[in-house]
Design a protein around this nucleic acid. Sequence first.
DNA 1: AGCGGGACTACAGAAACTATAGCACCCGCG
DNA 2: CGCGGGTGCTATAGTTTCTGTAGTCCCGCT
Lengths: 209, 209
Amino acid sequence: MAAPDRPLTPTQERVYSRLLEHQRRTGRLPELSDLARSLGIHYVSLRQHLEALRKKGYLEFESRGRGRSPYLALPPHATGVPVLGDIPAGPFDAAVAHPEAFLPMPGLAGASFALRVRGDSMADLIQPGDVVLLARRPLSRDGEICAVRVGEEDATLKYVRRLPGGRVELRPHNPAYDTLTVPADEVSLDGVYLGLLRGDAADALLEPA
Amino acid sequence: MAAPDRPLTPTQERVYSRLLEHQRRTGRLPELSDLARSLGIHYVSLRQHLEALRKKGYLEFESRGRGRSPYLALPPHATGVPVLGDIPAGPFDAAVAHPEAFLPMPGLAGASFALRVRGDSMADLIQPGDVVLLARRPLSRDGEICAVRVGEEDATLKYVRRLPGGRVELRPHNPAYDTLTVPADEVSLDGVYLGLLRGDAADALLEPA
DNA sequence: AGCGGGACTACAGAAACTATAGCACCCGCG
DNA sequence: CGCGGGTGCTATAGTTTCTGTAGTCCCGCT
């Protein structure tokens, strides 16, 4: 119930996306009466929708007594970047994986996710406990660092380059490991490297799920 | 006037730090009447202090008409990590440097800052346009990556290790460059590596100063 | 002696929010 | 066909926050 678990009706969708938009634009949430006016519906109706959204897990909404402003907030999964699992790690399905925690980064929410580094198999620039930020988008320039999986192996970070003939070159940062070239259809590209947070910095930022 | 430029009186200081604390704890700002009660002062007095803080550049505060909640916000420099300049770059004085922009990361504010990478002299893991997060703290473990300056040179990122005899080893990530050992008093350690954001991710997060 | 910071009292009005109740329409489902 | 859910309205009455303005007091500093 903590995470969105039920589909929204059209009007609930309208209310919810209006809240997201307002949060992005202004960094805060609108007042209920303003929102009701701008949606063209009545205050009482709006509250019914907010209550429905709350029950479905899309937001936090709590009355604080007569005359007081209600507590209204979008939960971390709406504004934060989810930490989906570990790297290297077994195959994870972004649609199914349930996040362990969230990085509050409104500018990146939706288009990206994060993985925590578990082993020390990566280059010395990345340590166990670090959190790697990854964009959910296809490769745009050759040579970008990506989280990739080959077949059933664990996800790892590699420099990815497309080769002629439908093959892909996977080069590890650590030169002690081999560079692979694999048919493109055997590689699943999970995310493009967007950044990294040292373990202690990540811990200071993370919000529990 | 945009940044804090004048000293605060004791009570203004109290009001301001209470706001910071509330923002850290709850992620939002308190209502004025609650705040006044918890500070043990009257509502009208509180508003005088908020107005004074606004004039001194410590916060944004604007009345929105009778009966409406006032607009109250802490500016980016209170909750964000400042981007102080470029790396490699000439000596920058953290106390004097005026930030170009801010990364909204409340958990790290105060204890850290950021530098934008300008040249491509760093290792291939760090590209021009990236933003490097740095902690304002001394070296805690040998081998940490730090932004250091030797004498009057530009600041660069190096693996730093303390050696017996008051010397310091500075090892670049790129093995093509030399590892230096320098007397500790010739090295100024500007910050300890906390993380990195790719240029496009940083651009999505940055707030102008 | 004057000034600024700090703090209070008082009052009237605007707007937001709570709480509750009732009415109406449309739609899908059993 | 009836029922429930979603949507939306009207209405009333009460609480609280916030605005705006005005006046009083004390204290420390210049």
